[in-house]
Nucleic acid binder design. Sequence first.
DNA 1: CGTGAAAATCTAGAAAA
DNA 2: TTTTCTAGATTTTCACG
Lengths: 160, 160
Amino acid sequence: MPKIPQPPLDEVDRSIVRVLAQNARIANNALADEVGVAASTCLARVRSLRDRGVIRGFQADVDLSALGMPLQAMISVRLRAHTREQNESFRSVAPGLPGVLEVFHMAGSDDYLLHVAVADSDALRDFVVDHLTTHPAVGQTQTNLIFERMAGSRFPEPGR
Amino acid sequence: MPKIPQPPLDEVDRSIVRVLAQNARIANNALADEVGVAASTCLARVRSLRDRGVIRGFQADVDLSALGMPLQAMISVRLRAHTREQNESFRSVAPGLPGVLEVFHMAGSDDYLLHVAVADSDALRDFVVDHLTTHPAVGQTQTNLIFERMAGSRFPEPGR
DNA sequence: CGTGAAAATCTAGAAAA
DNA sequence: TTTTCTAGATTTTCACG
């Protein structure tokens, strides 16, 4: 996903993004009303925002419990060695491992942080054993259960 | 958000959720085609999934750099005391702090993990000082920069 | 960026499996 | 009950001013 230039966002663009960040399925004309432009203008703006990569996509927020994966965990991963090759080999597979929601490449002593969802603690152990500790680039891992995940703002504004 | 009963999801429901998790703005009839039911059936299914809380909402995935917040961090928070009151007082404000993307209530020795986006390292320091270390319930914090965040699957299936 | 009109889509309700 | 069919209302979309 190339980073296309950066014509900075004007107020209308920011409003569009703010609304879509919270309600991605709003009809185009309702969105146009909300941000105060014509429907056709709004359509073009949204298209442009997508083309420029400001809006990457639209996603449904799903209750993972309802999908049978009620348990979440945060797994710190430390690589055996911090070479470019090891990083590349881990980063290329991590996001696709089953149940992985997010992968963070960290600046601290732990190289990666994996946010995962699993069916139960057995599945969690299997995940760690089958996909992490057996991966040649992985040194140590540490697993921490998540009691609860709360969503913050999806359209962060500079804190004053 | 009450947890409404659990009529387990059938194959059509799961397909709908799988598609919407990746493309929330797909037209209803296109979605109906994709999962193989009539449009009005599809509409009713989606409405039911929302009512049951399986689908919580629809969100645009926004490039935070384009919004002027290119720096992300993971902040571990340890409370002063692990009382219900302290937990409650922190949990009630954390998700609303400026730049907070996610708040994880953790089972380990660190009580909370905050995923935040900020404009630069000055803003990060200000965030920690102004909102965390000054909060009466907060004991220690540890901030780790995020080099990169990669999204995993939005519709996790049980790992085999 | 807005207007207008054609095309596509949405949606409720009736009918059917 | 659940799904499909049908048709009127709404929305999307684009050429043009």
